[in-house]
Design a protein around this nucleic acid. Structure first.
Ligand SMILES: [Zn+2]
Ligand SMILES: [Zn+2]
Ligand SMILES: [Zn+2]
Ligand SMILES: [Zn+2]
Ligand SMILES: [Zn+2]
Ligand SMILES: [Zn+2]
Length: 754
DNA sequence: GAGTTTGAAACT
DNA sequence: CAGTTTCAAACTC
């Protein structure tokens, strides 16, 4: 242990850490090394180009045979899996191997970002690199097209798709953005390419971008090290380059499916019926092609869809947030290939521990206490690591805003966490849920558990992707909103407006979608979901004696409809005095967000840096890109990302640094005003939703903003409505979710219109 | 760290 | 749906 720790430490200081940001999908189909994605996807073997993907496939293949036995009740499956775990894990471990191929894929260029984080400075000037990578260097030119930094245009992102194994969708080329943090400059990569990339990046307006010449091996330098199943949560995977003495470590987007269930989601999407489900489980990996084809049919995944996504991406611009969001959603929906993945937070990615990474990640993960203990110890031992973790966290959040949804980031939580603050990335601590229920934060957040989790009997791992997806679907079938972001940003469409007025913290900024039901905490503690999310209570809340410092329900209600709208809530709150009023109207509490730091103070300080990067438009990078569920689910899953992004953009670093501000934030859009409008037919939809009572968006504030919203917005809303009608679950295709297809079509249409 | 409190999630 | 149980986080000591 000690030794390892020291190694880590060293790495931290000396190695080049590259964070790979999700790749943007390129519209071009042609492609890439393997030539055609479709083919590529179809035949795993060809996936070589995507090293990590390949691995993943292997891993997947390793999935216990049990899964292949056909559809079974998740519970049963779990049992079986448990039995098979040992053997499978072992095999998996063996399967992992580092891929040199990755190098090829990597890097076209790198960006160096100044590290503003104070903590990081200590570590020898950490540099953040943004690296753009494509499968083929030649693609760079294309990348220019795609990345239009200046305009903030981003394309749909596809996570490293290729890698992903899962993926199904055909993707053609993928551009990867990588952000790398380098402790020392030793970057590498093709200088020319680099420049090109840099240029692009610069155009993006990233403040801290610097050009860095490098000579190193020209190659990218880093290859993805194993994507072990272990990790998962962090958006970035740690990659190390063995090339030179520098040992650079890089975080790369996990190949597909790793951290996020989304990937899986995509896959699941294709499953409309149990039959399909079983099929998935069964053929899981082996029958990828089939899946792909099927999916195409179902999804209409045709070239068109791909195009769409690309188009959508193009449209993205910071200027029009709304648009972005929408487009993002579209892109996401259209694209399936994505692999999103996971972000493995620093924490788990042991960052730097090669051994750990390479070796069996998953297996042990049954999380025995021992593992947890060891991990913790390491963390504790290595302060650098912690720091690094923070950095990663920042980066992750920056690029993967949706991660903000996770409470893991909560600084306070870390501090108090029983597991030790160690890396600050501690996650769940499930003992009996197998991490396959919403009780598990990881599962609920749509990410796989990672080493930093202290869970027991965990099945929320990439190895059990099928099981995870199946379970997800099951839960969604019960409650389509189960995985939807809990917090929605109130439609303030224009961030600018918010900032301008300085009233960004107005009540309208965000609210808990379903509201809380606190009885004893008075919404003053984190027991309250609203409070935990740093949002005030709204009409949707049924809390008693609400004193939410971010705004009380009563206040919210009052603010909006002083006179009428006597909601039941009012009655419920009869006991309240409304004394807290001071906060409510303005929800000043939000202001505090800036004080909060997700991972640690370091994050806060660095936020500015990230912010700059954010222009790169991370938002899309993430989920949107890859995952995409064709249906409305998409919106749910992705929109949060976008939203979050918006927040940052609009409100500044606050959210970024805030500890909980980052919870799932979703644009109000998800619940279009129309829904709010009783007269609208859509209302029915609302009703259909399980938690409708709470689901209803809080009325607070909506009116004003809606009226003020730009015209374009409205159209947007419509779009969304169409798409979301049923709050589609992960399994958009499922028959029971009728209308999904239609929705998808609608989306396309909408896009086309644009 | 153990034990308690809390409210969401799951179950009936 | 409502009522109850289960669960894991938040909190307390
Ligand atoms: Zn868990
Ligand atoms: Zn977990
Ligand atoms: Zn777990
Ligand atoms: Zn509450
Ligand atoms: Zn509340
Ligand atoms: Zn409340």
């Amino acid at each position: 242990m000690v030794e390892e720790a020291s190694n880590i430490h060293e790495q931290c200081n000396t190695q080049l850490n590259v964070v790979q940001i999700p790749s943007f999908e390129k519209e071009v189909q042609s492609c890439s090394p393997s030539g055609c994605v479709d083919q590529y996807l179809a035949d795993p073997v060809e996936v070589d180009c995507t090293p990590s993907a390949h691995k993943q496939l292997q891993l997947s293949t390793e999935v216990p045979q049990v899964l292949q036995s056909g559809y079974t009740d998740p519970k049963e499956t779990i049992k079986k899996v448990e039995d098979a775990v040992d053997s499978s894990s072992t095999r998996e471990a063996g399967a992992l191997t580092s891929s040199d191929q990755a190098k090829k894929n990597l890097c076209l260029s790198s960006l160096k970002l100044d590290e503003n984080v104070e903590d990081l400075r200590n570590d020898e000037s950490f540099n953040v690199f943004l690296k753009i990578t494509s499968e083929n260097v030649n693609d760079i030119a294309d990348s220019d097209v795609n990345l239009n930094p200046v305009s903030g245009v981003q394309h749909s992102e596809q996570y490293a798709a290729q890698e992903a194994n899962h993926h199904q969708r055909g993707i053609r080329r993928h551009l990867h953005f990588e952000a790398a943090i380098a402790c020392k400059s030793g970057t590498t990569g093709n200088t020319n390419d680099l420049r090109t990339s840099l240029t692009n990046l610069n155009s993006l307006g990233l403040p801290h971008v610097e050009r860095r010449a490098t000579s190193s091996g020209g190659e990218a330098v880093s290859y993805v090290q194993s994507r072990s199943s272990k990790s998962s949560f962090c958006p970035f995977e740690v990659v190390r380059s063995t090339q030179n003495s520098r040992n650079s470590v890089m975080l790369s987007p996990l190949p597909s499916s790793m951290g996020l269930h989304l990937n899986s989601t995509v896959r699941s999407v294709s499953l409309g019926t149990d039959k399909f489900a079983s099929r998935i489980l069964t053929g899981y990996l082996s029958s990828q092609d089939k899946l792909v084809h099927e999916r195409s049919n179902d999804l209409a995944e045709d070239p068109n869809s791909t195009s769409i996504s690309a188009v959508a991406g193009t449209k993205f611009s910071y200027a029009d947030v709304d648009q972005q969001e929408i487009q993002a959603g579209v892109a996401a929906s259209s694209d399936t290939s994505n692999p999103i993945n996971s972000l493995n937070p620093p924490c788990d990615s042991p960052p730097l521990e090669r051994t750990e990474q390479q070796v069996a990640p998953c297996e042990g993960r049954m999380s025995t206490p021992q593992n947890a203990g060891s991990v913790e110890e390491l963390d504790q031992v290595n302060s650098n690591r912690k720091r690094q973790a923070c950095t990663y966290c920042l980066i992750m959040l920056h690029f993967f805003p949706h991660l903000a949804n996770l409470s893991f980031w909560d600084a306070s939580r870390k501090r108090t966490s029983n597991t030790s603050d160690s890396d600050g990335c501690k996650r769940c601590n499930c003992k009996r849920s197998k991490c396959l229920k919403l009780y598990c934060e990881c599962f609920a957040a749509g990410v796989y558990c990672v080493d930093s989790c202290a869970c027991e009997s965990c099945f929320n791992k990439p190895e059990y992707e099928g099981l995870v997806l199946e379970t997800r679907q099951q839960i969604e079938s019960r409650n389509p909103l189960a995985f939807a972001p809990k917090v929605v940003k109130h439609a303030t469409n224009s961030p600018a407006i918010i900032m301008e007025e300085g009233n960004w913290n107005t009540p309208s900024s965000a609210r808990h979608k379903r509201g809380c039901n606190c009885k004893k905490s008075k919404c003053l503690k984190k027991y309250c979901e609203c409070f935990q999310a740093n949002v005030g209570c709204s009409n949707g809340c049924r809390c008693e004696g609400c004193q939410n410092s971010f705004g009380t329900m009563e206040a919210c209600r009052r603010a909006e409809n002083p006179s009428h709208e006597k909601l039941d809530t009012a009655d419920r709150e009869s006991g309240k005095d409304g004394s807290v009023e001071q906060f409510s109207p303005t929800w000043e509490g939000l202001a505090d967000l800036r004080n909060l730091a997700p991972c640690s103070g370091a994050l806060t300080s660095s936020s500015s840096t990230i912010r700059g990067c954010s222009k790169v438009s991370p938002a899309k990078l993430q989920w949107g890109s890859s995952i995409q569920p064709p249906a409305g689910s998409l919106h749910w899953h992705y929109s949060p990302v976008t939203l979050t992004q918006q927040l940052y953009e609009s409100t500044g670093p606050h959210e970024l640094t805030s500890d909980s501000a980052l919870h799932d934030i979703m644009e109000d859009e998800d619940i279009p005003e129309i829904l709010k409008d009783t007269s609208t037919p859509l209302k029915a939809v609302k009703a259909s939703s399980p938690n409708q009572k709470k689901v209803l968006p809080p009325q607070c504030q909506s009116e004003r903003q809606s009226s003020s919203s730009p015209r374009g917005f409205r159209s947007v809303r419509k779009f969304i409505l169409q798409a979301m009608p049923s709050f589609p679950p992960l399994t958009p295709y499922s028959n029971f979710k009728g209308g999904v297809n239609k929705t998808e079509n609608d989306q396309k249409d909408s896009i086309g219109n644009h």
